[in-house]
Write a protein that binds this DNA or RNA. Structure first.
Length: 423
RNA sequence: GUGGACGUAGCUCAGCUGGUAGAGCCCCGGAUUGUGGAUCCGGCUGUCGUGGGUUCGAGCCCCAUCGUCCACCCCA
């Protein structure tokens, strides 16, 4: 044997036992998004590095130390996307989708961040990314979360809490930032090292600190909610009213600060207590300035990203059942005539019954061996074909999950029997 | 990037104060030459993560390295 080539750290293979769960998540998500008028778009996984640097923010952790960046053969600086919004906006502008138009769009696929892997955090991970463009009012903010509440219900998960906050306009945020920095500077001694560092790079993140000492200081800090401009305040109030109307429960979390620079006004996060430290399953917010920042016409926008690995983990944790993917029937063949006839029978069944999952034993052996495999496959029934049956155009119909006797029936009748199990 | 725990068969794991590697599951064969499940019998599989070092001798001790997990940081 040759030398083994190991997989890349933090990048997972999603194995056949796991894919039914992923399909379930994708299928349900697709249906809910369609019900709200969202259309799928597919964009490249690689973009120019500049796109992410400009949109996410030069001084964010993502851009400073987490991106998979490289030079291609032409010397262009490219990056594996660390998030989807920048590419979606770029594609929207490139293709004229965002000019004076309302668009409800979504995409899904892999994202890449060079972080230390842990539970719910990987270097290649997958997101469903949803974006609404051209809508400035709080009703779309609310609708997105109403839609998410419906999605959670459809997926069968309940251990999620909605947290909301507002960051105001860039102008108010800047003013507030100043106040905040001044306040923290007065209490510098009480701040931990990380928080001191953040004071220069991203002071609002200090509000999110988990260090007890720092938390005490944070409690006395000025709140952004008290320094909002009137319009942002009204927007946030209306957003909450609409959530109330829909019976969506939420908690205002003044410390909720998104890590990406482009967020404005409404931000939100659906969190769970069931997944350890990486508790945010879905989060997003408004980014009214991003389209313009990337060279488009000023366009209000709001969106969110759902972490698929985290959602899959939550579904597992909550014991959501997975659709059965075991074969409906397992065909065993013994004898030269039966072997040939069996393949014809299998094709007839598949033609007559779209959706039928039929496995033909091609490993050989006597009836005992093949039936053992039939049982292991999880099939409901074994179709038993020997030369005797083949000559008479019949097949043994042997239920494997109850004690019903095997019967010999015509091929046509086999179609009718199996039809009941195929949707 | 920081800290801690852990890497032994395909999987889950045991392996004593350092003495030449084991169990269960899985898989394969048989009991059962046209019939699965339960039971019984037999069998296969190991760069002990990798590379060094200490030692007469290393799965065990030391160093380095890679990986996994958990937490920090950050975030989906």
């Amino acid at each position: 044997m040759s030398e083994l080539i190991p997989p890349i750290r933090g990048m997972n293979d999603i194995l056949p036992d796991a894919t039914p769960r992923w399909h379930q998540l994708e299928t349900v998500t697709r249906a809910v998004l369609a019900a709200y008028g969202y259309r799928e778009m597919r964009v490249p996984i690689v973009e120019k590095t500049e796109l992410f640097a400009r949109s996410i923010g030069e001084v964010t952790d993502i851009v400073e130390k987490e991106m998979y960046s490289f030079e291609d053969r032409n010397g262009e600086h490219l990056t594996l996307r660390p998030e989807a919004t920048a590419g979606m906006v770029r594609a929207g502008i490139s293709n004229g989708l965002l000019y004076n138009q309302v668009q409800r769009l979504w995409c899904h696929g892999p994202m890449f961040r060079h972080e230390r892997p842990q539970k719910g955090r990987y270097r290649q991970f997958h997101q469903v990314d949803v974006e609404a463009y051209g809508l400035a009012g709080p009703d779309i903010d609310a609708e997105l979360n109403i839609m998410l509440a419906r999605l959670w219900k459809a997926l069968g998960v309940s251990a999620l809490e909605l947290q909301i906050n507002t960051l105001g306009t860039p102008a108010t945020r800047q003013r507030y930032r100043k106040l905040l920095v001044e306040y923290f500077r007065r209490h510098l001694d009480a701040l931990d090292e990380d928080s001191r560092r953040r004071l220069d790079s991203n002071p609002m993140r200090v509000l999110d600190s988990k260090v007890p000492e720092t938390r005490k200081v944070v409690e006395g800090a000025p709140s952004l909610l008290d320094h909002l401009d009137a319009e942002s305040q009204a927007h946030f109030a209306e957003f909450q009213k609409l959530l109330d109307d829909s019976g969506i429960r939420y908690r205002v979390n003044p410390r909720l600060v998104r890590g990406l620079d482009y967020y404005t006004r409404t931000v939100f996060e659906w969190v769970t207590t069931r997944l350890g430290a990486q508790d945010a399953v879905c989060s997003g917010g408004r980014y009214d300035g991003l389209v313009e920042l990337l060279g488009g016409k000023p366009t209000p926008a709001i969106g969110f990203a759902m972490g698929m690995e985290r959602m899959v983990a939550l579904m597992e944790a909550e014991g959501v059942s997975v659709p059965d993917t075991a074969p409906h029937a397992y065909l065993v063949r013994v004898g030269a005539e039966a072997e040939r006839a069996g393949l014809r029978l299998a094709e007839q069944l598949r033609t007559a019954l779209p959706g039928l999952r039929l496995l033909v034993d091609c490993s050989g052996g006597d009836f005992g061996k093949q039936l053992k495999r039939a049982d292991k496959s999880g099939a409901r029934v074994a179709l038993v074909l020997g030369d005797n049956e083949a000559r008479k155009h019949e097949v043994g119909f042997k239920p494997l999950r109850n004690t019903t006797e095997q019967v010999s029936i015509s091929w046509d009748l086999a179609v009718a029997r199996l039809a009941a199990w195929v949707q």
